[in-house]
């Protein structure tokens, strides 16, 4: 883990009203690495992920304690621009959620809301993003068709392309394959391995094999706490905490 630290949390807790969903999490994410967050449902890993680009801000009655750093800067500091943070920390959701627009306009959306108007620039960047998300060959002849006409797996890669289009530095993936079949899943996993050359990736997954296949580092969450974090091959062969071992081997969760 010689890479530079891209994102980090320090003693971060998260509340839904009075309910403490995650407690005192300190975790670092290295540049150009894939970090997998695993743990049983309700352990707080998705909540944690959504705190990294301030997506939880839209849920009323929630609150964050502690710090979240992006390149050493606290993203929850007053005066930080949420919109700016979300441009640098992109996100792909559990269920593919393309807009009911054409494929082109879907990918161009992020560029347009960020002020890109030039037609040829839009075209270039949409094409580059679709290529980076390994879906260009499948959609290049149907850019003016509805994004909803694509298959689930294609839709999810479109959503990844859409997230890449605005040039993020970090990519948050919230169980991106849970709604997909094995073949589509395999394609996304290949894509993740490819994308880490240019991005810092944090992925929440329920699939142990997936975590083992795509990640460099794995963090195990349980009941809102971070139980253990280590290089993925160590986590899956000789975890140092019994709970981790039990979960990974399928004895609970």
């Amino acid at each position: 883990m010689s890479n530079k630290i891209k994102m980090a949390t320090r003693n971060m807790s998260f509340y839904y009203g009075d309910f403490k969903a995650i407690e005192g999490i300190t975790l670092e994410f290295s540049e150009n690495q894939v970090t997998a967050l695993i743990g049983p449902s309700g352990c707080g890993k998705s909540t944690f992920l959504r705190s990294l680009n301030r997506m939880n801000d839209i849920i009323p009655g929630t609150r964050v304690e502690g710090d979240v750093f992006l390149d050493g800067e606290n993203i929850y500091a007053s005066g930080m621009d949420m919109v700016e943070i979300r441009k640098r920390v992109g996100m792909v959701f559990q269920k593919p959620n393309p807009f009911p627009k054409t494929i082109f306009n879907d990918v161009a959306y992020g560029l347009r809301v960020n002020g890109v108007k030039n037609k040829s620039e839009l075209q270039d960047r949409v094409e580059a993003s679709l290529k980076a998300a390994a879906i260009w060959d499948e959609v290049k002849d149907r850019l003016n068709e509805s994004a909803l006409s694509l298959s689930g797996g294609q839709q999810q890669r479109l959503c990844i392309a859409r997230a890449l289009a605005i040039g993020p530095e970090v990519l948050l993936l919230d169980e991106p394959c849970s709604a997909l079949d094995p073949i589509a899943t395999q394609k996304i996993e290949e894509l993740i391995r490819e994308l880490k050359k240019n991005y810092t990736i944090i992925i929440v997954t329920h699939n142990m094999q997936q975590a083992a296949r795509v990640s460099d580092v794995t963090a195990f969450f349980y009941m809102g706490r971070l139980i253990e974090v280590n290089k993925t091959e160590i986590m899956f062969t000789k975890p140092s905490i019994k709970q981790t071992e039990d979960y990974i081997t399928g004895r609970f969760g």
Binding site: N53, M55, E84, G90, F93, N97, G110, V113, I166
Partner: peptide, 17 residues
């Protein structure tokens, strides 16, 4: 669907956009 709003916000859209 709430997912439309989330998608837009996550792409750096403002609330009004």
């Amino acid at each position: 669907p709430q997912t439309y709003r989330e998608a837009s916000l996550a792409l750096g859209g403002t609330r009004w956009q």
